[in-house]
Simulated assay, not measured.
Amino acid sequence: MGLFSRRKHPAANDAPTDRSARDATIAHLKEFILTRVGVEAYVEPRTNSTPTTVMLVATDGEWTRRRVPDGEAAAQIAREMNIPIYDVQRTGYPQRVRDYNSRQRLARKKSGGH
């Protein structure tokens, strides 16, 4: 396929649509919640270039992000798992995420990674 192919790749920016992809996303989010301390959810709105996502953040700043169909789907997962959920447009990201990312960059630099 050429660099400027007209062929579209809808799966690249769309929320998972088939049952197995949804189940895998939910399983990943639940596993993260169950294996980390103090997890909170942050809903990131859909933009022109990215779908709606939910970012889970643990107490130490470790995070994971997954596509979700919409904010209500993220809220449902948060309710089921009994964790707080925030709209990132209103609250912003917690400082611990930036601190965690900085620690990860330093660790990669020290180990010779890029």
Rank of each mutant, 00 (worst) to 15 (best):
92 G>S: 01
108 R>T: 03
77 I>F: 09
85 I>F: 04
38 G>P: 10
67 R>F: 11
85 I>D: 01
69 P>Q: 02
109 K>E: 00
85 I>N: 03
50 T>R: 11
112 G>L: 00
91 T>W: 14
40 E>P: 15
83 I>G: 12
109 K>N: 02
10 P>A: 01
94 P>I: 08
28 H>C: 04
71 G>Y: 07
53 T>C: 13
86 Y>D: 00
110 K>T: 05
22 R>V: 08
12 A>T: 05
59 T>H: 10
80 E>R: 05
60 D>M: 09
40 E>M: 09
89 Q>W: 11
4 F>D: 10
76 Q>S: 06
95 Q>V: 10
27 A>E: 07
100 Y>Q: 04
9 H>N: 09
32 F>N: 04
19 R>K: 13
108 R>P: 01
73 A>I: 14
89 Q>H: 10
19 R>M: 07
46 R>E: 09
17 T>Y: 08
36 R>W: 01
48 N>R: 15
77 I>H: 05
64 T>F: 07
57 V>H: 00
68 V>H: 05
83 I>W: 15
97 V>N: 00
81 M>E: 13
12 A>P: 13
104 Q>H: 14
79 R>Y: 14
103 R>A: 08
92 G>K: 06
6 R>M: 07
51 P>G: 06
27 A>R: 15
22 R>T: 08
80 E>C: 02
36 R>Q: 03
95 Q>K: 15
91 T>K: 07
10 P>V: 04
98 R>T: 09
54 V>F: 02
70 D>I: 13
14 D>C: 10
77 I>L: 08
85 I>C: 03
2 G>V: 08
35 T>I: 05
106 L>M: 14
